[in-house]
Design a protein around this nucleic acid. Sequence first.
DNA 1: TCTGGGGTCCTAGGACCC
DNA 2: TCTGGGGTCCTAGGACCC
Length: 411
Amino acid sequence: MAAVTAADSISDLTRRIAHLDMDAFYASVELLRYPQLKGLPVVIGGGRRHEDDALLAAYAGRLQEIPLADFPRLSGYAGRGVITTATYAARAFGVGSAMGLMKAARLCPDAILLPVDFAEYRHYSRRFKAVITDIAPVMEDRGVDEVYIDFTQVAGGQREGGRVLARLIQKSILDATGLTCSIGVAPNKLIAKMASEFNKPGGIAIVHPEDLQEKIWPLACRKINGIGPKTNEKLQQHGITTIGELAARPRDWLVAHFGKSSGAWLHDAAWGRDDRPVVTESEPVSMSRETTFERDLHAVRDKALLGEIFTELCQQVADDLQRKGYVGRTIGIKLRYEDFKIATRDQTVAIYTQDAVAIRRAAGQCLKRVPLQKRLRLLGVRVGTLLRADDPAATATGHDAQADPFTAPLF
DNA sequence: TCTGGGGTCCTAGGACCC
DNA sequence: TCTGGGGTCCTAGGACCC
């Protein structure tokens, strides 16, 4: 019987899938506005503050003239924000994504702190994605700064394993936006995603089926997209650290310890097997708004303030639904307590809605079903089971609406 | 001085129906 | 009154990702 080799595990040899990841995207967009910050430790995070507004007002239209000394520093920050992106210079100090800004300030107090500006990042996101689809139309959106691209059917997409096309895309994005990216090309999304990290920033990595043992198996399991801190910890407890060690476990053993579905998936992932297609279109499943308070709030003592925030969240979700043209019928709330524990409640109503009053009423009912002894750190409102507002099913009623106090007509 | 905001998908139990 | 087994919907929580 022939031995199973790594090359056997990736069956479709002609599929070429790319994963493209923009380098330090938010920070890089900010550097386009503030070229004087190039090479310096800069972190993006927290909300817009008074000093940010004052600075922008003082230098309106001449942002590149703002002297370094005038930029806010991490050391001056007092709040609950986290870092969303750090420049490579800042990463050298040990600061990185998801780290609390207060902790980051201890590591690198002199780093420049810029507020997040999603509108600006979305603008550049649309631009770089338009460049890509002009060259390779089968593109899957994976958020503001990354995409998968199917090279398989693109002219020249197979040359040098995809390297030629990857180079063209990199150069076209740089020319159009001034931004750099890293690209991994592999037989599937799973491997491409790992490969895009190999030569970051600004690099290209090509992985072939026969490279599995050499390039993938030495990596930590955590590098697999879908293995997070919890699964990683459990794997470690079984003495599994690398993907190769994971691949060495029998499928049945993984199924026995991680369940039928997860176990089988872990085994496939370790062997580089992944047949998910590149999906170019998708509909949203839910829309939500949430906010972390400046200080923890008490349901009774801070009732008025909480009520205002709650109403505003409902209004924001309703605005989002209306602006994007969706209605939904599962209304939910999310609380995060001072101890960081999370509670959610939701309720499915009879009539699809995008109305702030209807959302607030159902969400208010949810709020009555959740414990409110501990102080609250965060409040969120969510609408799920979405349908396009122009979908005929959106106006259908499941049962007698008059009988349901939460969905009765508003006026 | 810990720990944002916006998402997706999965699991699991109970209700309810056939 | 000894007993079943699917299927779907709803809800709560949790893992994970960008």
